[in-house]
C-alpha cells in the first residue's frame, strides 16, 4: 500500500508541474498589464511601476531590492520567465505563494480567509448529494418503472440540462422573492449578520449547496440506480433470494453494500471537485469562497492569487482522489492496486 501511495504521488508531480506551467505561460500572454492596473484606473508614474515590479520579483533586483538597470539601454531587466517560475516553486516549498498585486497582502492569507467558506459549502453540498442522490437512486431502482422511477429519471435529466447558475437564480426567486413572507428572506441572504446561533448560519448554505450539488446529485442517483439493478441481478443475490431471504433483507443487507461502492467513489471524487470552488455558484450567491476570489483575480490580472489558488486546488483535488482510491482499494479487494485507477 505504501508503495502504491508513493507511486501515485510521483505520478502526480508531472501533472502538477504541467498545470502550473500552463497557467504560468497563459498569464504571460493574457492582454492587460497587471501592474498598470494596480493604480485602479489612473496612469501611474514609470518609477512607481518599476518599484512595484521590483517588489514582486518581475524585474532583476540587487541585494537591496533595488531594480538593476541594463548597462547599455538604462532600462530595467525583466526577470526571465524560467527564473520567475523557479521563484514560484521555491516559494511554494516554503509555504509562500507570493503577495497580491492589488492588495499587497500575502496570497496565503487571502486564500485562507476564503477557503473555509468553500469547504463548508462543499460539505453541505456533499451531504445533500449523498442523501438525495442515493435515496432517489434506491427508490427508483427498487420501484423500477413506477411513477417514482419516472419522476427521478425525469428530474435528473432536467437537473443535468439546466445551467447551475440559472437554477441558483430560480431558487432565489422562489424562496427569496415569491416566498419572502414565509422565509423572511432567510434563504436569500448568503450568511447572516446577526446570526447568534450556528443554525441560522447554516440555513443560508442550503440553496447554494443545492445549486452546487445539483448536477452531481443527478449523476449519483443514476449511478445508484444502475448499480443496484446490476447487483440485484448478480448470482449471489439470486442465491440469497433462492435461500428464502426476503427481498427487503437482500437489498438492505447485501445488494446495497456492494452497489454503494462505486457511488461512494463518485461522491468522493465529486467532493474534490467541489473543493475547487465553483465560480458560477459562488458568483450567483455572492459566496465569499475561493472560486469567486480566483475569478475576480483573473479579471484583475492579480496573478499571484490565481497561481496560488490553482496550486492549492490542484493539490487538494489530488489528495482527495488519492484518499478515494485508497479507500476504494480497501472497500473492494477485487481491485488490484496495479490496475489503472485514474479518475476524471
Amino acid at each position: 500500500m505504501a508503495k502504491y501511495i508513493v507511486r501515485r504521488v510521483l505520478q502526480f508531480i508531472p501533472v502538477f508541474l504541467g498545470v502550473t506551467i500552463i497557467m504560468f505561460l497563459l498569464q504571460n500572454v493574457v492582454p492587460g498589464d497587471p501592474i498598470k492596473l494596480i493604480a485602479g484606473d489612473k496612469a501611474m508614474s514609470p518609477e512607481a511601476e518599476l518599484a512595484i515590479k521590483a517588489d514582486h520579483g518581475l524585474v532583476v533586483t540587487d541585494e537591496n531590492g533595488k531594480p538593476v538597470l541594463d548597462e547599455k539601454t538604462g532600462e530595467p531587466i525583466p526577470t526571465p520567465l524560467i527564473q520567475q517560475y523557479f521563484n514560484y516553486l521555491n516559494g511554494l516549498v516554503h509555504g509562500d505563494l507570493g503577495t497580491s498585486y492589488k492588495r499587497n497582502l500575502p496570497v496565503t492569507e487571502i486564500l485562507l480567509q476564503k477557503y473555509p467558506y468553500t469547504v463548508r459549502l462543499a460539505l453541505v453540498g456533499i451531504v445533500i448529494e449523498a442523501i438525495i442522490g442515493i435515496g432517489a437512486g434506491i427508490i427508483s431502482a427498487i420501484k423500477r418503472y413506477s411513477f417514482w422511477d419516472t419522476l427521478v429519471t425525469l428530474s435528473t435529466s432536467i437537473l443535468v440540462a439546466m445551467p447551475a447558475f440559472w437554477l441558483g437564480m430560480l431558487l432565489q426567486l422562489f424562496f427569496g422573492v415569491l416566498c419572502k413572507n414565509w422565509t423572511n428572506g432567510a434563504f436569500y441572504l448568503p450568511i447572516s449578520f446577526n446570526a447568534n446561533g450556528e443554525f441560522q448560519d447554516w440555513v443560508y448554505y442550503i440553496l447554494p449547496a443545492f445549486t452546487l450539488a445539483s448536477v452531481s446529485t443527478a449523476y449519483t442517483s443514476r449511478i445508484m440506480r444502475s448499480q443496484l439493478l446490476e447487483v440485484m441481478n448478480a448470482d449471489y443475490i439470486r442465491t440469497a433470494r433462492a435461500k428464502g431471504l426476503s427481498r427487503k433483507a437482500v437489498i438492505w443487507r447485501h445488494a446495497l453494500k456492494n452497489a454503494l461502492i462505486p457511488v461512494v467513489t463518485y461522491i468522493g471524487i465529486d467532493f474534490g471537485v467541489m473543493l475547487s470552488g465553483a465560480i458560477l455558484t459562488e458568483t450567483v450567491f455572492n459566496w465569499p469562497g475561493v472560486g469567486n476570489e480566483i475569478y475576480l483575480a483573473i479579471s484583475q490580472r492579480d496573478w499571484p492569487i490565481v497561481m496560488g489558488g490553482v496550486t492549492i486546488i490542484v493539490i487538494v483535488v489530488m489528495i482527495i482522489n488519492l484518499l478515494v482510491d485508497i479507500s476504494y482499494a480497501f472497500l473492494d479487494p477485487r481491485i488490484r492496486l496495479g490496475a489503472s485507477s485514474n479518475k476524471n
Binding site: Q27, A278, L280, V310, M318
Partner: peptide
Amino acid sequence: LAFPYTLFVVV
C-alpha cells in the same frame, strides 16, 4: 482534466 474546468475556460 486536473484543471478546474470553468477556471480554465475563463483564463
